[in-house]
């Protein structure tokens, strides 16, 4: 299971890097989404992949009974997914607004903040 997950993470990162090298900002954003999923999977896989019940405490007990899955990476991944979701949604909104105002998605043509210097002689 770990080997498979590692392969998936590797593929995701490779695809993400490929997309992020593109000039189009939308492709960069898609690459970012893949990379964020790769990071989340990394955390998930770090918690060790073992078959086990959900870490729930039954009624009237103080601790879960039997073999349960490690709950901490799940909590970490959930937090990371939520934060990633918020950030990526914000970035999408920003990209949309930038497209509306700058009329381009080509990051080479986004030179408003750093205009090309006019070389004087």
């Amino acid at each position: 299971m770990e080997a498979l997950t590692a392969l998936i993470i590797g593929t995701l990162v490779a695809a993400a890097v490929y997309l992020m090298l593109a000039r189009n900002f939308m492709r960069f954003l898609f690459g970012l989404i893949l990379l964020s999923n790769a990071a989340n999977l990394t955390i998930f896989a770090s918690g060790r992949m073992t078959p086990g019940a959900p870490a729930l405490v039954p009624y009237g007990e103080d601790a879960p009974i039997g073999v349960v899955g490690n709950a901490l990476p799940q909590a970490l991944v959930l937090t990371a997914i939520v934060i990633g979701f918020g950030l990526l949604a914000f970035t999408l909104a920003l990209a949309f607004e930038a497209y509306r105002r700058l009329r381009t998605m080509d990051s080479d043509k986004m030179r408003y903040a750093e205009p090309k210097e006019d070389r004087k002689g």
């Binding site: 949604a89 914000f90 909104a93 949309f96 509306r100």
Partner: peptide, 13 residues
Amino acid sequence: GGILSLTFAFDEE
């Protein structure tokens, strides 16, 4: 509130 403010903004834009 957070999710709705984002989705409404997308829908209206």
